[in-house]
Design a protein around this nucleic acid. Structure first.
Length: 110
DNA sequence: GATTTGACTACTA
DNA sequence: GTAGTAGCCAAAT
């Protein structure tokens, strides 16, 4: 059985896992890649269950690179710590040079 | 089956 | 420039 999973959630997880080390993406970018560009919220929703999956949700931020979902992590700085651990600079819960670290699946994966 | 919610995004005041 | 509201879509209650 292919693990493609037709579920919207699984698609989000799949893309999130494809995010390369030291890169980040936005909910809208993933949503767009899934064909639901206007369902950026769905991506975040899917992330709610990402804890059961090995999904690097810390690499997924909002369109401005703000760590909006950090509240959903265990610690208050866990998300930032993970990002900094990958060489990404985080300032005030926001990714520095977000554009440089931005990884768009629709562009990178095409 | 209808209502609420939700880790977003964009527009408008 | 900041703040608030509206629009989207899909899942959970």
């Amino acid at each position: 059985m292919a693990q493609q999973d037709d579920n919207f959630f699984e698609k989000v997880y799949a893309v999130a896992r494809l995010v390369p080390y030291g890169r980040v993406t936005s909910y809208g970018a993933i949503a767009k890649y899934l064909g639901a560009a206007r369902s950026a919220r769905m991506v975040g929703w899917a992330m709610n269950g990402s804890h059961d999956k090995d999904v690097p949700a810390h690499r997924v931020v909002n369109r401005v690179g703000l760590l909006t979902g950090k509240h959903h992590f265990e610690g208050t700085n866990l998300m930032q710590q993970l990002l900094e651990s990958e060489g990404i600079m985080v300032k005030d819960n926001k990714i520095v040079d977000f554009e440089k670290h931005f990884w768009d699946p629709a562009t990178e994966l095409a």
